[in-house]
Write a protein that binds this DNA or RNA. Structure first.
Lengths: 139, 139
DNA sequence: TTTCAATTTAGATCTATTCTAAAGCTATAT
DNA sequence: ATATAGCTTTAGAATAGATCTAAATTGAAA
């Protein structure tokens, strides 16, 4: 069976079209890269990858494309407290993140690891809950 | 009994000294303001307040002071996904935040409103958990 | 194949924040 | 009280990350 981690370029192209996004070469490449990594890359990370694998892609295109993809919900934009840079995540499944406070590395934690029950005061209508675990990881 | 919301300037001065911070007039004023509001002010908010109530305070001092106070743990620095600006919170008690996605306003939610049980995978050592509720509030 | 809109690009601009170095204060020892 | 050494404050310059602009390029569709 198929995980996002081994999507082909063709499949990514189809995915973009499904989301009403014109599938240019740059968009396919960037989208494919973000969907097939677990490293939560920043714009700079994606640019560095492009410099090796898709030369001549401008920084503006990296920004435009990542924002576009996040806008239509193909990937997610993340902000973490230790850094000003946006990170991007191709994993839309139920999970949250663990930030290693020593290294700045981000790890995925399955959503099932956290059971919670929330009772908001009157008047608050919840749309989404965000979680971040912080500490250190020794792998 | 005394909540942080009605601390006097003298009490704030004492608090700073307890934390090993020299209690200059600017620091007392900024610290008092952040401790006695529930509005999670940004740097600009604090600067705007200062322009009315402590004229001639420079923007650099607002930044320096807020960072210093957060560094020694008298207040907390917060980042939210809807904005690039840092927010500051004088409430160190057990609570988390609700972000109104329409207005950008931030509300306090008592920590007791959320019960949770976390089972991290092997090797993760938790130091702190961060929560953010998002949605809309009709007050 | 012409055309019109969408995409990409380099560079300028913007925003939040930090840095710099000079000027102003404050505590403490005399 | 006064000197002085070390803080603190300040204005403005500098930086980092992201967005905007307008021109060039590409692509889709008649």
């Amino acid at each position: 069976m198929k995980s996002r981690l081994n999507l082909t370029l063709r499949e990514v192209e189809a995915l973009l079209k499904e989301h009403g996004v014109q599938a240019s070469a740059q968009r396919i490449a960037v989208c494919h890269y973000v969907l097939t990594t677990n490293t939560h890359p920043t714009v700079d990370d994606v640019k560095a990858w492009a410099d090796e694998n898709f030369p001549k892609m401008s920084l503006a295109t990296v920004y435009n494309t990542l924002n576009l993809l996040a806008g239509v919900g193909v990937i997610k934009a993340l902000k973490f407290p230790h850094s000003d840079k946006a990170h991007f995540d191709g994993d839309l499944s139920n999970h949250f993140h663990f930030l290693d406070e020593d290294t700045g590395k981000i790890y995925d934690i399955p959503g099932e690891s956290l059971k919670y029950q929330l009772d908001l005061p009157e008047g608050f209508e919840l749309s989404e809950m965000e979680f971040l675990a912080k500490g250190k990881f020794q792998g």
